[in-house]
């Protein structure tokens, strides 16, 4: 009886080996699913269909999207540019972390496709987007004026 019990235990310890698995980084990279949070027609349709857009490129040198970065997304068979306005990933102190990866779709010149953002936007985006905006280049600060609430 005892030996059979022991056998069972040893067998189970061999079969169920525990691998150490680290917590996921929740990084935004190519093929990450994102959530459109503005009221643009294409974004609303894509989210309602249950086919949220995918990131197909991150416009920075690391290839990992951080807050305020520009990404290229595949949405309803089209390629659109978007700004990351809220991330699941752990953030620095005082910077909010969201439960979903939020984007706002923009045109090539930086003006948003929608007219309203229906979730809160981190205030740090004010500084980040102002820094990214250059004279004669795309103006990303228009996105801030359509935000409904800041946190």
């Amino acid at each position: 009886m005892l030996s059979s019990c022991l056998m069972k235990q040893t067998c189970s310890s061999i079969i169920f080996r525990n691998f150490h698995i680290s917590y996921q980084c929740l990084e935004i990279q190519k093929l990450t699913r994102l959530r459109v949070v503005d009221n643009s027609e294409i974004g609303k349709q894509a989210m309602a269909e249950g086919r949220p857009p995918r990131c197909i490129h991150v416009y920075n040198k690391t290839g990992v999207g951080r807050i305020g970065d520009k990404v290229l997304v595949a949405i309803k068979g089209e390629k659109k540019k978007a700004i990351l306005v809220g991330l699941k990933q752990n953030q620095k102190p005082n910077v909010p972390k969201f439960d979903s990866n939020n984007i706002v779709l923009i045109e090539d010149d930086g003006s948003p496709l929608g007219t309203r953002i229906h979730v809160p936007i981190p205030t740090i985006l004010r500084t980040i987007l102002k820094e990214k905006t250059q004279t004669k280049g795309a103006d990303y600060t228009k996105l801030l004026s359509i935000a409904s609430r800041f946190v």
């Binding site: 953030q91 005082n94 972390k97 979730v119 809160p120 609430r149 946190v151």
Partner: peptide
Amino acid sequence: VIDHQGIEVLYQMYDPS
């Protein structure tokens, strides 16, 4: 949860801000 969006903020207790 603000506007149906879950939000978390990490604060440092002795942060001068």
